[in-house]
Design a protein around this nucleic acid. Structure first.
Lengths: 193, 193
DNA sequence: TTGTTAAACGGAGCAATCCTCCGCATATAT
DNA sequence: ATATATGCGGAGGATTGCTCCGTTTAACAA
């Protein structure tokens, strides 16, 4: 497997520009709830040909994943920052709330995302990792400080949060989601019984 | 709104039979992970014409919802049964575990289901109610017995469980899901701090 | 049993969408 | 200025969702 990268040339500037254009347009569309928008339409709005879209993103799922990944990376990056500013348990809570805020900010990538899950589930395996490591650190710190139980698996919390994004509809869902965060925190503490 | 039903005749037997046939075939296909199966194929496997499928279910989403609803009803029906057999908190825990089991039994209707959420979200509003009332009863009993906090909104727990179904992939997901149930129960108890 | 009628059936065909293919244009490097 | 690899663009084949309407058949009455 000689998998070496040989960048004989620098990547072309127009290519980069078109790529980010496509991502922005797609993100805007998905955010606006137009999850079933034809790909031709996305290409048109971005001012490129359909062929260009398909070169950058070989199929619909790849495009969705790319949009999704970009946002998740930003969310993941917030974790170490919060860890530096708050005591462990509060950092964890804050991050989970941030997760909720992301969904509230109409960055509802979840629905689009879930369409993929039906296929292989590989998307989660890939994209999940950045969130995974983000929350891993937060939980590890809280365990180390003796605040929450060592039995807690970070992925459990992630699953719960993911669920929120699906039910993210109807009035009052946001307060409900934040209550859930508190329940999760309370349930994760070292047993006081 | 004269919304009266005038069943001038009894429903035709072949109609009923074809309808259940379609539901069974669709359920089998979705369960097997073929969420993207063409509707023509479903009709073929059920031994009916495509037109028949579309009369019973006006579009793909309607078919998915019908499959989904049938399973959810069964899950909801289990709630009062469990309530009669266990103390309140344990009944709640048992029901939530049953929820997990349903997903484990490859009744993964969730992925298909989530595809719809992107649209209007009305599906959740409709189908969610049967689960809602099921868990409402369980929680109310647990609150009444003084075991869990009155602040708990049942829907919060439902959201979390729904999340599990999305992340239902990879080895060990099931134990993770059951751990989550325990966390939720622990977090819902009357605060001991 | 036989006739009548409303209900259900079935599949050809239209429209929309996904994605491929390949000749053309342009940015990069010499 | 020239060469060439990289990226662009859109026509078109294949697939799928859904509609429409003539034909078939089960339910009911006499």
């Amino acid at each position: 497997m000689t998998d070496e990268k040989k960048p004989r040339r620098r990547p072309r500037s127009d290519g980069q520009r078109n790529r980010t254009n496509l991502l922005n347009v797609a993100k805007a569309a998905f955010t606006a709830g137009e999850t079933d928008i034809p790909l031709d339409e996305i290409a048109r709005r971005a001012g490129v040909g359909i062929g260009t879209l398909y070169r950058h993103f070989p199929n619909r799922d790849a495009l969705i994943e790319a949009v999704y990944r970009a946002e998740l990376d930003r969310l993941a990056d917030a974790a170490p920052l919060l860890a530096a500013q708050h005591p462990p348990v509060e950092a964890l809570r804050a991050w989970m709330r941030l997760f909720v805020d992301y969904i509230a900010a109409k960055l509802v990538i979840a629905p689009a995302l879930n369409g993929l899950a039906g296929g292989t589930g590989t998307l989660y395996a890939q994209s999940g990792t950045v969130l995974q490591s983000a929350i891993d650190g937060l939980v590890a710190a809280a365990v180390a400080s003796g605040d929450i139980s060592a039995d807690i698996e970070p992925v459990d919390l992630l699953r719960a949060l993911a669920g929120v994004s699906n039910y993210a509809a109807g009035p009052g869902w946001e307060t409900s989601a934040k209550r859930l965060v508190d329940i999760l925190i309370a349930g994760s503490r070292v047993s006081t019984s």
